[in-house]
Amino acid sequence: MKILIIEDEIDIATSIKSYLKANDIHCETASKFETALDKITMYDYDCILVDLMLPDGDGFNILKELKSLNKSEGIIIISAKETLETKIEGFNLGADDYLTKPFHLSELLVRIQALVRRKKFNGNNKIGFNEIEVDTLAKSVKIGEKKIECTKKEIDLLLFLIGNKNKVLSKSAIAEHLSGDMADMLDNHDFVYAHIKNLKKKLSDAGSNDYIKSIYGIGYKWNND
């Protein structure tokens, strides 16, 4: 998978790059409006991350340019601006998702995966991992041929973990992913433990391997070893 990161803060761009690299995502970066325009006209990407505030231009103009080029790349806006108006304008100009800075890299990764899945495999919403299969549309989980009952939150958690396989996830990253808009309000991440415990039990009861590994009791990791 190849994505373009249009971001003037090089530190943010490199962090994203190094995080995504391990998941076989090749990242190219553009820190200026002009270079970004050059790149989107010359190459095709699976997904483009756009920062709205660039030193020499407005990120919205990149979206307009992409629209006029009839490009169908998935676009995720990454911005410090979080007013409803900005978001609406972004979506109107063809953005597929909007992430407010600061965000967890793990969150960005699953958003990219979800977006690419929607764009590339129209209708096919099944994600597999060894014996586990998740249907993101029907919101159901199967272990081999056996269907298990999971809550919406648990499926969300499972997708997040699988999406970030082999990555160490802090409780706060998981908590923020699960609570969506309410993430700002969180003070206590203990509820993550309860969800992990329930999910683990449901998976092992259905005969799945135990992939969820606790890291020093503070974080978790979906382990493929």
Partner: peptide
Amino acid sequence: QTPIAIFKGKLETLLQRSDVTEEQFEILD
């Protein structure tokens, strides 16, 4: 917001290193 974003990004990158000890992990958390 931008420096905080950078800060968080770097922390998360650091968290992925395989040689992070428990003590370091706690500090990072």
